[in-house]
Simulated scan of single mutants.
Amino acid sequence: MNRVILMGRLTRDPDVRYSQGERAMAIARYTLAVDRRGRRNQDSEQTADFINCVAFDKAGEFAEKYFKQGMRVLISGRIQTGSYTNKDGVKVYTTDIVVEDQEFADSKGATAPGEGPRQTNRPEQSSVGDGFMNIPDGLEDDDLPFN
């Protein structure tokens, strides 16, 4: 299984580009500074890892619209490795998180704690899981949202 969940702060605004072709797609790249729990350097400062993330299509558009430098965000996705040869002929290895879900980790303005815009690439699921609305017991026909 290849699954990763990270919470960190954006080191800069996402860099968003659009693919070429019949169907242009947003490709957002950003870096998260993720604190290492319990680890401090010689000066007693918290240390962090800087994780490269890439979000495609709607997730990329969401990052472009809502994510700004310094925001704390929560992402989940998968690790993807790759390599390329740079212009000097040196092979460069890469590790990125391909974002599948992303959301704000802090509240903002009038938003209640833990709430805020959330973006996911998965379809919404009902609370019951079978596609039907959960109606509490004891409601009369007049109380139902449909008749």
Rank of each mutant, 00 (worst) to 15 (best):
L6N: 03
P113N: 15
I97H: 00
T111K: 13
M1V: 13
A24K: 02
D57N: 09
L74N: 07
P117A: 14
T31H: 09
G21Q: 09
A59H: 06
A55H: 00
R9F: 11
D49R: 02
A48K: 06
T94L: 02
E140W: 02
D88V: 08
R39K: 08
T11Y: 11
R40T: 10
E64R: 13
R36F: 01
G38D: 12
I27S: 07
V16D: 09
V54T: 15
R78G: 12
G109Q: 10
K108D: 12
V34G: 07
M25C: 15
I27D: 00
N52P: 00
E100K: 02
Y66T: 09
Y18I: 14
P136W: 03
D101S: 04
L32S: 10
E103R: 04
G89V: 01
G77K: 02
R72H: 07
S127R: 05
E115F: 06
T120W: 06
L10R: 04
M133W: 02
D143V: 01
Q42D: 13
R23L: 12
D15N: 04
G8C: 15
P117M: 15
T11C: 15
Y30L: 14
F56R: 01
Q69W: 00
D101T: 02
K58I: 08
D137F: 11
L6K: 03
R9N: 15
R36W: 01
K68T: 14
V90S: 05
A112K: 07
P136Q: 07
C53F: 05
V90A: 08
V92C: 10
E100V: 03
T31I: 13
K68Y: 10
I79M: 06
F67Q: 12
T11W: 11
K108W: 15
T120Y: 01
R118S: 09
A55D: 04
D143W: 04
G8E: 14
F104K: 07
R29E: 13
R118I: 03
D137S: 09
R40K: 02
Q42H: 08
K91H: 08
T85Q: 15
A55L: 09
D106R: 07
S107C: 14
E140L: 05
A110C: 00
P123H: 04
R40C: 05
S19Y: 09
A48L: 03
A112R: 08
N52F: 05
R9W: 10
V98T: 03
M7P: 06
P136I: 03
M133S: 13
I27Y: 09
F56T: 02
L144K: 06
S127V: 10
T11A: 15
T94D: 10
V54L: 10
V73K: 04
E61R: 05
